[in-house]
Design a protein around this nucleic acid. Structure first.
Lengths: 335, 335
DNA sequence: CTGAAAGCGCTAACAT
DNA sequence: ATGTTAGCGCTTTCAG
């Protein structure tokens, strides 16, 4: 293993000069910097992160807390995780994966052990048990998701409230007078998952504003659930002509279920979804959707964290504005 | 932050005694050990991993290399990752997530930086470019997947060759005389992904052994691809009555496609799959399948790594025997 | 069985 | 602009 003293000797300077030349934390003459860089290259030196950290500097590791709860859509979560890793690498950080510890034991442990110097927290609930811990943590953190009380925290998310409104606005503009939200699995709402709740709020508020009828239906996944909810909607709400889906894996089965029941999309029923673009675009009938920008959220979270690490001020909540893309699944209300 | 000297003072012993009492690396009197443990509990001491490592001990971190290549089934990969994290935690290790670096740059970097003290490598190809690196690494590693030349490495995997055979054996026993393998997306084979290739080998070998006709068809995902491959199979191979599917996301669409084409399962066509049990069991028609034991593989990989870290000898390759579960999708060959 | 002391490789005062 | 030196918190000789 090549260490900093090796580089120093080779470059004919002191270890601290190498350290400073590498970190840029104090001015170094061009001549010296060049010699150091040459020595680093020739010897293939890489700073030994553990002792780097032992000496009081950062560990250059971010912890990513991903509670793998039931009802979460795995591909979306994974996309978050991948984008966090990618963004972290761009800032020369690595990512420690925390999957358990709903109460935050994992986060606390990592913090005390000094393993990470910042934390990204996913799947945030409105009243999240991890919040007190995060507030008291000596490490900066960023939440993907906005809890009920975001004071003292840093959060990023799609503006799900606005996303719900946008879907309803779109349907209302097309003349629809009765809409339904087919949501995530019930356990997601029971946990008071922030994004799911906010979408419901936005959906309902917009429907009220437009004075159109609205109902909300948490729904499991799979063919059976799709068929059941489709039948129920048709039976209980004959006037229904607009549906918003917030449940990725249910999208395709739901389209199938409606068609099997003789409901044509978009002729008889308009369908809108909040989901990643690929899911909406590659459904059997391309679905008008509000994009779930997983990658951008992950990237933003890391950027915010890096800025916090450097001591820069960051906004408390960053809400990405929703964008609706029209596809084949929505049309004017049938007469 | 409570440090080892605090514990030492509180317990009335020297720091080194605390260290030894905690690591068990030298005999400590019961009395002393108890006092140390009490002090640790009372003060809530946790060993500071970074400096622990700086002093030459392990970092208690495993790196998990997950190349997120196209064609991999995200839920399966995620299940691996989660099981690796869970198993690692059971051994008091954390997991660093590496997603990029197909050539192993990430692994090399982690090793040199001393961030992890062992590596789990996923999505192994028959000729994997990361192999030379892994062989020369000062860190122990375990591969999930078996490359063409596993000498000097430690590998775990489902015995995909046997899995392919098992599917064909099952179909042959039911009287089928012409079978087809609908495989993973083409790029997976182009990359020479180990498990996919081995399955093909087993499939073909078993078919030859039974003297029944066999063809292999890499296949993309989605409704369109399912429909296309179904039509092609029916057109080109009228005698076909048995299909093995090795492509999780295609399973449901393929069943649909066959049924839409008037082919009844299992009356006209028997279907077998190699995939996680939940996928097979919750398909529209429950599918006879060989289980993909993602969780067990992840757990095994970590166990092997822990053993290697402790210097214990480990087998070069651990191949889990495939297990076939009969469900509704297979039946005797139609007359 | 236990202590004292010397580092691990690096960073950050403190010097010059 | 650079060097010297004292640690970071822990492990591990070396010495009882």
């Amino acid at each position: 293993m090549v260490k900093i003293t090796d580089v120093a000797r080779r470059a004919g300077v002191s270890p601290s000069t190498v350290s400073y030349a590498l970190s840029g934390k104090r001015p170094i003459s061009d001549e010296t910097r060049r010699r150091v860089q040459a020595a680093v290259r020739e010897l293939g030196y890489r700073t030994h992160v553990r002792t780097h950290g032992a000496a009081g500097a950062g560990s250059r590791v971010l912890a990513l807390a991903v509670p793998m709860r039931s009802g979460v859509h795995v591909p979306v979560v994974t996309q978050f995780a991948v984008s966090v890793v990618t963004a972290a690498r761009a800032h020369d950080h690595d990512v420690l994966l925390l999957t358990q510890g709903e109460g935050g034991e994992g986060i606390g442990r990592i913090a005390e052990a000094g393993l990470a110097d910042a934390v990204v927290v996913m799947d945030v609930q409105l009243q999240d048990p991890r919040l007190p811990l995060l507030r008291s943590l000596p490490l900066p953190s960023v939440l993907i998701g906005v809890p009920a009380e975001p004071d003292g925290l840093t959060c990023v998310d799609l503006d799900f409230g606005a996303a719900g409104e946008l879907c309803v606005d779109h349907l209302a503009r097309l003349g629809h007078r009765t809409v339904a939200l087919v949501g995530s699995p019930p356990e997601v709402y029971v946990r008071r998952t922030a994004f799911a709740r906010r979408l419901v709020q936005g959906f309902t508020a917009a429907a009220d504003r437009h004075r159109i009828g609205s109902t909300v239906h948490p729904c499991g996944t799979g063919r059976g659930a799709a068929r059941a909810i489709a039948e129920r909607l048709l039976r209980e709400q004959p006037a229904l002509t607009g549906v918003v889906v917030h449940n990725e894996p249910l999208l395709d089965p739901l389209i199938d279920a409606f068609e099997e029941l003789g409901v044509r999309i978009p002729d008889d029923l308009s369908l809108t979804a909040v989901c990643p673009t690929p899911v909406a675009a590659s459904a059997r009938i391309p679905v008008t959707s509000v994009t779930m920008p997983s990658t951008e959220l992950g990237t933003r979270a890391v950027h915010l964290l890096i800025r916090k690490l450097s001591g820069a001020p960051v906004p408390q909540a960053t809400l990405l504005p929703p964008r609706l893309t029209e596809r084949a699944s929505t049309g004017p209300r049938p007469c």
